[in-house]
Design a protein around this nucleic acid. Structure first.
Length: 266
DNA sequence: CGTATTTGACCGGCGC
DNA sequence: GCGCCGGTCAAATACG
């Protein structure tokens, strides 16, 4: 009898927990969506500010001298580069037999050049974002000198528009297991591949690791994070595990977490 | 025929 | 000044 009551109580608690978990998931989803919207709005505003600055610069030059528009525009573009000149390096698994330097990342690119560089026998392809007229994001794609199965894509600048990756994630390899990792802008070699530390690799140093993508959209968002986490004491961590370990060591954090979980349950 | 890609020419920065 | 190198331009070409 008593045992029966206990089990029904447990069931009630379980369904309660399930419901709470569901509502927390929904809340999380909503917050992520809002963050995504704010991110996009921020990018658009930055692009508009950039255009205004360029226009102002052109106007000043036109009133000061009678030189032609194109020269002024070119100068304005160089004087005022992309609002935040971010660069990020992304490594993507590719078939060594496939000679195309195409990295599917959810954006539309127009190729405008190809060049063989000194340090790498594989040609480097130059792309410009063609999804939005004002977008000045560029990317360079080249096969890794150390492993031809890996494409190195270097992104330069910040998109002023959304990608279509969110709507059709499965199509784009950068958002699936094809992506190997993100390296810091200063890195010059494959040793900067970032992968979960618990994944060991005995076959090849460049074998793709599983990368869990928590970003909201395109590759430039990766650059903002670069897998570097910062805690509330302003300490930087270069991998998730280290960050989690530090947080769990912090009694304030664990107490706050426990309180938050308790609040969500009752 | 319009659009995307290719590819040689050109440009600017840098070191000598 | 010269040569090297990476990045960009633009005419030619390919493609749907």
């Amino acid at each position: 009898m008593e045992a029966h009551i206990t089990s029904s109580n447990e069931k009630a608690v379980e369904t309660d927990l399930q419901a709470n978990l569901q509502s927390l998931r929904k809340e999380n989803e909503t917050l992520r969506f809002m963050l995504g919207v704010m991110n996009r709005k921020c990018n658009i505003l930055q692009a508009r500010l950039q255009e205004r600055k360029a226009e102002q610069f052109m106007n000043i030059n036109l009133t000061q001298s009678g030189s032609n528009n194109e020269t002024n525009y070119k100068k304005a573009r160089t004087e005022f580069p992309a609002p935040i000149n971010r660069t990020s390096r992304i490594l993507v698994r590719a078939d060594s037999q496939d000679n195309s330097l195409i990295v599917k990342d959810g954006y539309q690119w127009r190729k405008y050049g190809q060049k063989v560089t000194k340090d790498n026998p594989s040609p480097r392809a130059y792309f410009r974002c063609s999804m939005a007229p004002g977008c000045q994001v560029k990317k360079k794609v080249q096969r890794c000198v150390e492993d031809k199965n890996v494409l190195v894509a270097i992104y330069d600048g910040e998109h002023n528009h959304d990608s279509n990756a969110n709507s059709d994630i499965g199509e784009y390899s950068l958002f699936s297991s094809d992506r190997i990792g993100v390296a810091t802008p200063s890195s010059n070699s494959m040793h900067n591949i970032i992968s979960p530390p618990h994944i060991t690799n005995h076959d090849s140093p460049f074998r793709p690791a599983i990368a869990l993508d928590l970003s909201l959209s395109g590759p430039n968002k990766e650059n903002q994070r670069n897998y570097v986490e910062k805690d509330h004491h302003n300490n930087y961590y270069y991998n998730i595990e280290e960050c989690v370990a530090s947080l769990t060591r912090d009694p304030n954090f664990t107490a706050s977490l426990a309180a938050a979980v308790a609040r969500s349950m009752y």
